[in-house]
């Protein structure tokens, strides 16, 4: 089927100057890209249009459309007393989780790229947090952090660091310590993917460049920063962009561990979106999801722009 079309496409080209054929020929690429365009329109563009539309409607608490609402949902959303804190927290969440994940993953990848006995097993083990359901991981951490009898608290108690029945040991009950633990779990589940991307990157670096560096008498540290890191740039870029989006949109960790509370003290925009919807403010929730969407796009583009600028500066 495809070969036929290709042949006809090729046959058409020389005849282009004659007659009405060119118009048809212009349409020919549609046969290839048409299905993709249809898929994008249906699965990508249409939901975005729906999302934007629903943010301008007045919804009852129970999802009945009560007509147009203009920008009311947005003005209500920006008047929410907790929104400022939520946005700031989302920023901290993304920056800290992605940065720590990247740094730790670079080290982990370096380690796993060495030859050592049992490397295959160790590499398999690294996949575990990735393969496990994020919700289960979050729940298990929640149990391990229980005041009094959680595993982590027992461990810390045995080490003499924290009294496991003291208020401090109620990690998820306080806004700050709860959020820090959630960021730790987010890093934990992001490391496998990132490490594998970096390992894949490390394996594409040819041995010759290292030999050349050796010949020139570069130190190990110098080799890492001047050869390895620059050559890893493409895979680091991919890992970082995907992590930024994943972490930004992450919901289950925070929801399972603290439900975004106490109050809304550990909510990010994604969690707050659900909180608004749960409280019956569907329109506001839709408005926040539009804001969220725009934010992701802006962050990703800004990030790519900055990385690109770095490459040119080299």
């Amino acid at each position: 089927m495809t070969t036929h079309t290709e042949q006809r496409g090729r046959d058409l080209r020389p005849r282009r100057p004659h007659g009405a054929r060119p118009a048809l020929a212009g349409l020919a690429p549609l046969a290839w890209i048409g299905p993709a365009i249809a898929l994008i329109a249906f699965a990508v563009l249409w939901p975005v249009v729906k999302m934007a539309q629903s943010s301008t409607r007045h919804w009852s608490r129970y999802g009945v459309d009560l007509g147009s609402n203009g920008t009311d949902n947005y003005s209500k959303l920006f008047k929410e007393q907790d929104l400022g804190g939520v946005l700031l927290r989302t920023g901290i969440w993304v920056v800290v989780v992605v940065t720590v994940t990247m740094v730790v993953s670079l080290a982990v990848a370096q380690l796993f790229n060495q030859r050592f006995p049992g490397r295959t097993v160790a590499r398999w083990a690294l996949i575990a947090p990735w393969a496990a359901s994020v919700m289960m991981t979050a729940l298990i951490f929640k149990y391990m952090l229980y005041q009094g009898y959680g595993f982590i608290n027992i461990l810390l108690d045995d080490l003499g660091l924290v009294d496991r029945s003291s208020p401090t040991a109620d990690w998820l009950g306080h806004s700050t310590s709860g959020f820090v633990w959630e960021m730790a779990v987010a890093v934990f589940v992001s490391i496998p993917f990132t490490s594998y991307t970096v390992i894949a990157g490390l394996q594409t670096i040819p041995a010759e460049v290292y030999e050349a560096a050796k010949m020139d008498g570069a130190s190990k540290l110098r080799t890492y920063f001047s050869v390895t890191l620059p050559m890893l740039r493409p895979s680091l870029l991919v890992a970082a962009v995907i992590n930024v989006m994943n972490v930004f949109n992450s919901f289950p960790i925070i929801w399972e561990m603290t439900r975004g509370g106490p109050g809304y003290d550990t909510s990010t925009t994604t969690v707050f979106m659900w909180v608004l919807k749960k409280g019956g403010h569907i329109g506001e929730s839709a408005a926040l999801s539009v804001v969220n969407f725009v934010l992701v796009i802006v962050i990703v583009f800004a990030f790519l722009k900055v990385s690109k600028w770095n490459i040119e500066a080299d």
Partner: peptide, 13 residues
């Protein structure tokens, strides 16, 4: 990359 990102975030949305 931007396209990948766009598609992924749209899929999530």
């Amino acid at each position: 990359l931007a396209a990948t990102g766009l598609a992924a975030s749209l899929a999530l949305a």
